Computed example of a mutant assay.
Amino acid sequence: MKKILSAAVTGLFLVGPQSAFAGPIENACLRSDRAQATRAMCRCIDSVAQTALTRSEQRRAASFFSDPDRAQQVRMSKSARDNEFWDRYRAFGSTAEQYCAGR
């Protein structure tokens, strides 16, 4: 058992922390077809997301990269839950824009 765990931990270091611990926002950003989606930019946005959004909200926001219409549906929703999420998502977006500009 120790050998398996040791091999797994060693494998994480060989792969690198950036890919082993990338959050849902970073992964979605890197997979997007946006020219500005550099590793540094995506990592920065993900780090802001980790402080501004819950893990569940991060996964929800990550889905917007592949389905922008979903973001519009949430924005236009009359649901209190969606409106509360959208407020946090907009705050996250503003913070990420300020913090990650020029990366």
Rank of each mutant, 00 (worst) to 15 (best):
residue 6 S to Y: 12
residue 20 A to K: 00
residue 77 S to P: 09
residue 91 A to D: 11
residue 78 K to F: 02
residue 97 E to Y: 11
residue 7 A to L: 11
residue 65 F to H: 09
residue 57 E to Y: 02
residue 24 P to K: 06
residue 89 Y to K: 10
residue 40 A to R: 05
residue 39 R to I: 05
residue 8 A to C: 11
residue 19 S to F: 12
residue 59 R to Q: 14
residue 2 K to V: 13
residue 52 A to E: 13
residue 80 A to N: 00
residue 84 E to I: 12
residue 89 Y to V: 06
residue 56 S to R: 12
residue 50 Q to N: 14
residue 89 Y to T: 12
residue 67 D to L: 08
residue 32 S to N: 00
residue 65 F to Q: 07
residue 64 F to V: 13
residue 75 R to L: 13
residue 65 F to N: 08
residue 40 A to T: 07
residue 97 E to T: 15
residue 2 K to Q: 04
residue 89 Y to H: 12
residue 61 A to S: 08
residue 1 M to N: 07
residue 102 G to T: 00
residue 61 A to W: 05
residue 62 A to I: 12
residue 54 T to P: 04
residue 73 Q to M: 09
residue 30 L to F: 01
residue 88 R to W: 07
residue 9 V to F: 05
residue 6 S to C: 08
residue 76 M to W: 08
residue 101 A to E: 12
residue 97 E to D: 15
residue 65 F to W: 11
residue 57 E to T: 08
residue 71 A to L: 14
residue 31 R to V: 07
residue 101 A to Y: 11
residue 98 Q to P: 00
residue 25 I to N: 03
residue 67 D to T: 15
residue 3 K to T: 10
residue 17 P to W: 08
residue 96 A to F: 10
residue 17 P to A: 15
residue 16 G to S: 09
residue 63 S to N: 13
residue 81 R to N: 12
residue 54 T to Y: 00
residue 78 K to E: 11
residue 42 C to H: 04
residue 8 A to P: 01
residue 64 F to Q: 02
residue 102 G to E: 07
residue 39 R to N: 08
residue 57 E to W: 05
residue 97 E to A: 15
residue 9 V to G: 03
residue 23 G to P: 01
residue 80 A to R: 06
residue 97 E to Q: 15
residue 77 S to W: 03
residue 16 G to V: 15
residue 83 N to D: 06
residue 54 T to I: 00
residue 58 Q to Y: 01
residue 81 R to K: 12
residue 67 D to I: 10
residue 73 Q to W: 05
residue 36 Q to M: 07
residue 39 R to A: 09
residue 57 E to H: 01
residue 40 A to M: 04
residue 84 E to P: 00
residue 42 C to A: 03
residue 14 L to I: 14
residue 57 E to F: 06
residue 45 I to N: 03
residue 75 R to N: 06
residue 26 E to I: 02
residue 56 S to D: 13
residue 20 A to G: 08
residue 46 D to I: 00
residue 87 D to P: 00
residue 50 Q to S: 07
residue 9 V to S: 09
residue 72 Q to D: 01
residue 54 T to V: 03
residue 94 S to H: 10
residue 92 F to Y: 12
residue 55 R to P: 03
residue 61 A to T: 13
residue 10 T to E: 10
residue 89 Y to S: 09
residue 102 G to L: 07
residue 72 Q to Y: 05
residue 35 A to N: 09
residue 69 D to Y: 06
residue 3 K to Q: 09
residue 38 T to R: 02
residue 20 A to W: 07
residue 35 A to D: 11
residue 80 A to T: 07
residue 19 S to W: 13
residue 56 S to I: 01
residue 54 T to K: 07
residue 98 Q to H: 13
residue 4 I to H: 02
residue 71 A to N: 06
residue 78 K to D: 10
residue 64 F to Y: 14
residue 48 V to D: 05
residue 28 A to P: 06
residue 77 S to H: 09
residue 95 T to R: 15
residue 55 R to V: 08
residue 29 C to T: 03
residue 48 V to W: 02
residue 81 R to P: 00
residue 4 I to K: 07
residue 24 P to M: 01
residue 51 T to F: 01
residue 90 R to G: 00
residue 13 F to P: 10
residue 5 L to Y: 11
residue 70 R to W: 08
residue 42 C to S: 02
residue 101 A to F: 15
residue 20 A to Y: 08
residue 18 Q to S: 14
residue 39 R to K: 13
residue 14 L to R: 14
